[in-house]
Design a protein around this nucleic acid. Structure first.
Length: 476
RNA sequence: GCCCCCAUGGACUAGCGGUUAGGUCACCACCCUUUCAAGGUGGUAGCGCCAGUUCAACUCUGGCUGGGGGCACCA
């Protein structure tokens, strides 16, 4: 059975690149009716972050990437790793290293200064077993794996055959002085113990794969199939990182990107179908995903396309669903959200315009509050007509006064009714519709852009409309 | 410095020897329209370079250039 895993380290947030890795693993598992497991790689105590695991799990849940196991936590399995390290020591595939980190650092500095590749000098490699046992009792030590001087070739599903030479690779530390294993050891041991069949991970791991291959060999285990995904990039083509924009999945969530849109967009960063389909349901992705159709080159994370796609998904949401999802954002902006039906009507009028959910409060705020803000430019351009004759300005006031009269007469203040009465008035005065529509719009909403005018007036209600127009006339 | 990976318009990509090099985002124009959007139609823009193989290279091979990743008691 196909078994894959997502193995993040809990650094405090889920990186968007990590999410892509998780997604591809998930899709691959579901497509093959296999298992998708979660493993937390927290073997670095110096990077321990309070609450990071919980946060990670919460974000994964928000993304709807459900895993099939109780998450494996590496820091709780120290005895297991120790057992395997001992096995390697016993078989002479590894050795204790008593060098201090100061010495190693010094050595590395010198090597770099001499333009040599930084590499351990194997100072402790030839200490006899007896000596090593003895020293282990009084000194702290790490354990290093022995890299054989041989050609290491492995097949990567995405990249084909990749070749390294063992002689160029360091004797990697597999067990630290604090008793914790390093990534390489823990990763290989756990993947084996969890029966992982396919390792799908980022390209940054490609060059340490030979170490893993050798570990599998030393243990006598069959290595999994490897697939190294191209990296996600900043706009300057460097590895996607903080500093150049948001990289945490929760940032996107908090800005109002839909989980469906984020995943859909991210799925397309490094994978595509032959017909270049853009919009996929999750089921669709599961059905069509394959590692063979993954690309090899890094992909720039382009927010523009994500924004477009998010809008696409928002437009497809039912109005109830959209309202529910927008409510937290409206609340955050300080508005009362108890009147669901009213909010629904407001949002419906703006649905086509919403790119991210955090747009919603601003788009509908003039429905929700009485002291609306009048956009200065809009006022100048539409109401005050700066630079043109005062007679025109007067006529706008007159028009608005007439409109008040017209609207006061309307019994059934519906969009249809308002429109027909407005048009009737326009004709009777031989005015252009724009001479009426624009000033009314600005008067009631404070801005030039907005929803369909008459639907907006209906929703606002006769009382507010008359009040707001009156208020504007007073300023003229 | 060493090792590895990669290379189609501004971005994501399709292509797997013969195509008017296709799609999506962005951009521009037009249409629709009371505004802004949305939607529709059309458009600008691309195979990094040099050899080789071949009747024929975006496609295969080699080199170059460019970009990226890795080289921790981090993952």
């Amino acid at each position: 059975m196909v078994t894959v895993r997502f193995a993040p380290s809990p650094t405090g947030y889920l990186h968007i690149g990590g999410l892509r890795t998780a997604l591809y693993n998930y899709l691959f598992a579901r497509h093959n009716k296999g298992k998708f497991l979660l493993r937390i790689e927290d073997t670095d105590r110096t990077r321990y972050v309070e609450g990071a695991i919980e946060k990670l799990i919460e974000v994964l849940k928000w993304c709807n990437l459900e895993y099939d196991n109780i998450p494996i936590i590496q820091s709780q399995r120290l005895d297991i790793y120790k057992k395997y390290v001992d096995e390697l020591l016993q078989k002479d595939f590894a050795y204790r290293c008593f060098c201090t980190s100061e010495r190693l650092e010094e050595m590395r500095k010198n090597q770099i200064a001499k333009k040599q590749p930084p590499k351990y000098d194997r100072c402790c490699k030839d200490i006899t077993k007896e000596e090593s046992e003895k020293m282990a009792k009084e000194k702290t030590f790490t354990v290093r794996m022995k890299m054989p001087s041989e050609e290491i070739i492995f097949n990567d599903v995405i990249r084909g055959d990749v070749k390294f030479h063992g002689s160029l690779i360091d004797d990697q530390i597999i067990l630290k002085t604090d008793g914790y294993p390093t990534y390489h050891l823990a990763n290989v041991v756990d993947d084996h113990l969890m029966d992982v069949t396919h390792v799908i991970r980022g390209e940054e791991w490609l060059s340490s794969t030979p170490k893993h291959i050798i570990l599998y060999k030393y243990f006598g285990w069959t290595p999994p199939v490897f697939a190294h995904l191209p990296l996600l990039l900043n706009s300057d083509k460097s590895k996607l990182s903080k500093r150049q924009g948001d990289v945490a999945v929760e940032d996107y969530r908090d800005k109002g990107y839909l989980q469906e849109a984020l995943l859909n967009y991210i799925a397309l960063l490094g994978w595509s179908t032959e017909d270049s389909q853009q919009i996929f349901t999750k089921e669709n992705l599961i059905e069509k995903f394959s590692l063979e159709r993954c690309g090899k080159s890094g992909a720039i994370f382009d927010i523009q396309k994500l924004i477009w796609m998010n809008g696409e998904y928002i437009r497809k949401l039912s109005i109830d669903e959209l309202t529910n999802r927008a409510i937290p954002f409206i609340q955050k902006a300080g508005f009362d959200t108890s009147n669901f039906d009213f909010l629904k009507k407001c949002i419906l009028l703006e649905q086509d315009k919403i790119k991210v959910l955090s747009d919603v409060p601003h788009l509908i705020d003039f429905f929700l509050k009485d002291d609306i803000i009048y956009d200065e430019k809009a006022m100048q351009k539409v109401i005050k007509k700066e630079g043109t004759s005062t007679t025109l300005s007067t006529s706008i006031a007159d028009i608005l006064k007439d409109i008040i009269n017209v609207y006061s007469q309307i019994q059934n203040f519906s969009a249809q009714e308002i429109e027909s009465e407005t048009r009737k008035y326009t004709e009777s005065k031989s005015l252009k519709t724009s001479q009426i529509f624009h000033p009314v719009r600005v008067a009631v909403s404070g801005r030039t852009e907005g929803p369909s005018l008459f639907h907006m007036l209906e929703l606002l209600g006769k009382e507010k409309v008359l009040l707001r127009i009156t208020k504007i006339i007073d300023t003229l």
